[in-house]
Simulated scan of single mutants.
Amino acid sequence: MKALTWQAKRTVTVEEVDDPVIQDPGDAIIRVTSSAICGSDLHLYELLGPFLDRGDIPGREPMGEVVEVGSGVTRLAVGDRIVVPFTIACGECFMCTRGLQSQCETTQVREYGTGAALFGYTKLYGQVAGGQAEYLRIPRADYNHIAVGPDLPDERYLFLSDILPTAWQGVEYAHVPEGGTLVVMGLGPVGQLVTRVGRHRGYRVLAVDPVAERRAMAERHGIETIDLDDDVAARLVDLTDARGADSVVDAVGLEAHGNSGIELVQKSVGLLPDPLARQVFEKAGMDRLAALHASIDAVRRGGTVSLSGVYAGDADILPMKTMFDKQISLRMGQCNVKNWVDALLPLVEDPADPLGVMDLTTHHAPLEDAPELYRTFQRKEDGCIKVVLHPMSA
C-alpha cells in the first residue's frame, strides 16, 4: 500500500510499504477513505523526531470501511463504515470505565511512563502505525471505533476521531458558568471548534490569533476575534468588565508565538543524536509558553484555564505566585474521545450542522500531495486551516 512516512525533521514522503495484517484476534483492517492532518502531526514534523524512526506512519484522524476482521471481533463486519478514535483503549479497565480512555491501563506505554497508546504518534505513545495510509490496522477494534451510517459525507464524521471531541473536552474542562465569557487562544482547527462549541452553549466567545484567514473563519460563526500582540491579555481584560474572562481555553500549546529563546533551545535539542535528545526532552524539555502565560493573565480571579493545546516539557516554569494569588483552576489532558461521542454524534448528524463541521476543511487532497501540504499547513500559507487527505476513494 501507499503510506505517508516520516523520514527526518520536516521531511515526510509517500512510499510503498507492506499492507497491515491481522496480528491479534481483536484486530480489524480498514480501507482509509479520509485522514486529516492534525496540528499534533506538525509536532512530529518539527520537534519530536528523536522519538520517531524513519518509515513511521503518522495520522491520528482516520475513517474508512472495514475490509477484514479478526476471529475475536464481534461488533464489526466487513463493509461497516467507521471513524477511528486516535486513542487506543480497552473500554474495561479502571480508567476507561471512568471516562479516562486516554489513560487506559491496558494500553499505557509504561516504558515511557505515558498514557494510552495513540495512532501514529512516536515511541512515547506506542509507535502504532497511523492512518495517513491506504489501509490501517485497528487494535482492540470492538472498542476502538465509532460506527457511522452510510449516507452522510466523510467530512460530517471525520473530526470525531480527534479534534471535535478534543474541543468539546476543552470546553467541558473550562467550566464556563451559564452565560459566561470564554476566551480561546489560537484559531487552528481545535480552536475553531472550541469557539463553535462555546457559542453553541450560549457563551460569549472571544478568540485570539495572528492569522487573518483564521480570524475570518471564526467571525463567520459569530465569534469576536482579536489579533495577537504584546498587550493581548490586557485587551482581553478590558473587554471583560476589567475583570478577565470566566474561562480560557489554550488551543495553541508548545509551539506558541513569542518565545524565541525557547524556540532556539527546542531546535538545538532536535539536532542532538536521538538517544541524547530523548533524554533531554524527557528530563529537561521546555515548551514555548506564551499562549499559556497569556491565558493565565486573561482569566479572571477564580476562573479556569483549560489546555487543549499539547505541552511536552518537563522543565517548564509556571507563574505559580500569580496562579495561586488569582485562585486559578487548571485542567488539561489528551482527549478521552469515546467519553464524548454520545453527545457529539447527534450534533454532527444534525442537518443544521450546529458546530460547523462542514466549514473547517480548507484543503482536500490525495495522499500523494501530503508532503507539500504538511509544509503549507505548518507555514500557515494559502489560507490553510485544515487538510483532509483521501488515500482511497469512498
Rank of each mutant, 00 (worst) to 15 (best):
A298L: 01
I88V: 05
Q169D: 14
V387Y: 02
V265H: 11
L48K: 06
V232I: 08
Q334F: 10
P58E: 07
P366H: 13
A245D: 00
R215Q: 02
D231C: 06
P85A: 02
V66Q: 11
P153Q: 14
D287G: 03
L236C: 02
V248I: 06
G126S: 02
C38Q: 03
M332T: 15
G188P: 04
L318S: 08
M323D: 00
A212Q: 11
I328C: 00
S247D: 02
D230Q: 13
G244A: 01
V66M: 11
D369P: 04
E213Y: 10
D382P: 05
I296G: 00
L345S: 04
H175M: 09
R81A: 03
T74R: 14
K123V: 06
S161A: 15
I29H: 02
T376C: 04
A256Q: 08
T181G: 02
G64C: 12
A8I: 13
A251G: 09
R199S: 05
V305Q: 01
G191C: 08
I37N: 03
Q132D: 06
G253E: 05
N259K: 06
I82C: 09
I328Y: 01
A174C: 08
V194H: 05
G202I: 04
Q378I: 07
H257P: 08
P165W: 10
K326M: 00
D314E: 14
E213G: 12
V197A: 07
D287V: 11
C90Y: 08
P153W: 14
Q103P: 06
H175I: 07
G149K: 13
P273F: 08
R110E: 12
E381H: 07
K123E: 15
R98W: 09
T107D: 10
V69F: 02
V197Q: 00
C96A: 07
S35C: 13
S247K: 04
V337T: 00
Q108K: 15
R196A: 05
Q279A: 07
P275G: 01
C104S: 01
A242T: 11
Y311E: 01
F159H: 07
P371E: 13
A28E: 13
D229F: 06
G91P: 04
V248G: 00
M217W: 07
L160T: 00
T122W: 06
L76T: 03
G303C: 00
A147Q: 12
A167P: 01
P25W: 13
M185D: 00
I296L: 04
Q192D: 05
L389G: 03
V280Q: 10
R75S: 14
L4G: 05
M332Q: 12
E255N: 10
V148C: 03
P62W: 09
L158R: 11
V73T: 03
G113S: 07
E368D: 15
I328D: 01
T181N: 00
G356Y: 12
L76A: 09
C93R: 07
M63G: 06
D56S: 15
V194C: 01
L389R: 11
S306E: 13
I88G: 03
P371F: 08
T361N: 04
L373M: 08
M1R: 02
M63P: 03
G130N: 03
R288S: 13
E172W: 11
